[in-house]
Write a protein that binds this DNA or RNA. Structure first.
Lengths: 224, 224
DNA sequence: GTACATTTCAAACACTTGTTTAAATTGTGC
DNA sequence: GCACAATTTAAACAAGTGTTTGAAATGTAC
C-alpha cells in the first residue's frame, strides 16, 4: 500500500519535470521510469497508458488550482459593480503561487506543462481540461467581459488567447530569461517577480483600443 | 538537373506543410517523402539530414524576410526623431505578407514554423536564427527603445519576450484558434486578420505603465 | 504458516524512427 | 554510342517507441 503510493508519486514527480522540460511527445517512458527509479512497466500498471499519465500529472495541479480560482471568481462575481480588469487578472496570482505547496516549483512546472499541452499536439488534453473545468473558466471570461464592456466578444477571445500565449511562453523559457535578466540587469528574478511584470502587460494588451479601418489612428494598414 | 530541382522543391513543399501542422519532431521523413511522392532516401541525399531539412525549410523564408526587414529598420533608423511604437511594430506587416509570394500561404506557414521552432525542442534552430540574423533583430530592439524612452531597459527586455511569446504561441496554435473563432463568431480568419489583431495588443502591452508599489492598479479601460 | 491479492521485474512484443547501402536508372558531355 | 556523374530506388540497418506478458517478489488477512 505504501509502496504503491510511493511508486505512483515517484512516477508523477519524474514525469512532470521531464514533460515540462522536453514536452510530452519527446519524453519517453524509459526516461521517466529511469529518473523515477522504477520499472518500465510500472507506468502502464499504475496509470494504464502514457496518455493517462499525462492527464494525471496535470490533474494534480488542476484539482487544487481550479477550486481556488472558482472561489475567487465567485467572490468577484458577487460584487455589485464590475471589477476593473487589473483586479480580475490579479486574482490568478495567489492561486497560482499556492501551487508551490503541491510541489517544489509547482507554479513554474504547472505553467510550463500548460504550455506544452497547447503547443504539443495533445488534443486529448485540451478536451480534458475543457470538459472538466470549462465552467470555471467561463466565469473568468465573464468577469473580463464585464470589466471591458466595450470590447467585442471576438476581440476578447483573441486577446485572451494572446495572453495565454504570453504567460505560457514566458514560463516555458523562464529559466533562460531569468538568467539573462540577472546577468544583464543585476536583478534577482523569481516567479512572483515575473508575474508582477506580466500583469500590467496583459492588462494593457487586453484593454487596448480596438483597431478599426474607419479611424486607424495607428499606422497599421498594409498595402493590400 | 531539372529532376533534382524538382525533387528538392517537392520535399520542401511537403515538409513545410507537415512541419507547420504537426511540429518538427512529430513529422516523420516517411510522411514527408510520401506526401512529396519521392523516395525516402531523397531527403538524406539532397539535404543531408532531417535537421538540415528543417533549416532549409525555414531558410527559404528567412532569406527573403530578413532582407526586407533590414531595409525597413534602416529606413526608420534614418528618421530624425524617434518613431512611435505602433509605427515600429507595423513595419513587420508588409515584409511578412510578402512571404505569400514565396509560397501559397507563405506568411501563415512561416509564422507557424517560427512558433514550432521555439516551442518544439529545436536548440539548433534558435542558434541558427540568432547567428545568421541577430544583427538585424538588434536594430529592431534599438527602434523600440527609441520609441519608449521612458521604459527601463530591463522592463523592455521582459516585455519584448512577452511579445515574442504572444506571437509564437498564437502562430503555433493558429489553426485551432481560427477554427474556434470561425465556429463561435462566424468570422473568416486569415493570417492578415490575426496580425492586425495582434498589433494593438502588442503595442499596448509593451508601452504599458510600469508597475510600482507606490501607485498600483491603474484603471485600464479600452476604447474604440 | 498458508492462501490470496497486489506489486515489481526482466524480457519480449510489434512498430516506428532517421540513416545507410549498393544496385539500378537516368542525365550529361564528348 | 560510350563513359562518367547524378539521381532514384528498394532493402536493410540499428536504435528507440509504448505496451504486454508471465513469472517472481512482496504485502495482507486469517
Amino acid at each position: 500500500m505504501v509502496a504503491k503510493q510511493n511508486t505512483q508519486q515517484k512516477i508523477l514527480d519524474a514525469a512532470q519535470s521531464l514533460f515540462a522540460e522536453t514536452g510530452f511527445n519527446d519524453t519517453s517512458l524509459r526516461q521517466i521510469t529511469s529518473l523515477a527509479e522504477v520499472n518500465l512497466a510500472a507506468v502502464n500498471y499504475h496509470f494504464g497508458s502514457k496518455k493517462e499519465l499525462i492527464q494525471a500529472v496535470l490533474q494534480r495541479y488542476l484539482r487544487v488550482l481550479m477550486v481556488r480560482l472558482d472561489q475567487e471568481f465567485n467572490r468577484l462575481l458577487a460584487a455589485q459593480q464590475p471589477n476593473n480588469l487589473t483586479q480580475v487578472l490579479a486574482v490568478f496570482v495567489k492561486p497560482l503561487l499556492e501551487l508551490n505547496s503541491v510541489h517544489n516549483n509547482g507554479t513554474r512546472i504547472f505553467l510550463q506543462l500548460l504550455g506544452r499541452g497547447y503547443t504539443d499536439v495533445q488534443g486529448h488534453l485540451r478536451w480534458f481540461i475543457n470538459n472538466h473545468y470549462g465552467r470555471v473558466l467561463d466565469k473568468f471570461v465573464l468577469l473580463v467581459q464585464q470589466s471591458c464592456p466595450q470590447l467585442p466578444a471576438s476581440e476578447l477571445f483573441w486577446r485572451l488567447h494572446f495572453s495565454l500565449g504570453t504567460v505560457v511562453f514566458t514560463m516555458a523559457s523562464n529559466e533562460a530569461l531569468a538568467e539573462i535578466a540577472e546577468a544583464d540587469f543585476n536583478e534577482e528574478v523569481d516567479i512572483e517577480g515575473v508575474i508582477q511584470r506580466l500583469l500590467p502587460y496583459l492588462a494593457a494588451g487586453i484593454a487596448a483600443p480596438v483597431y478599426t479601418r474607419s479611424h486607424p489612428q495607428q499606422q497599421l494598414r498594409s498595402g493590400t
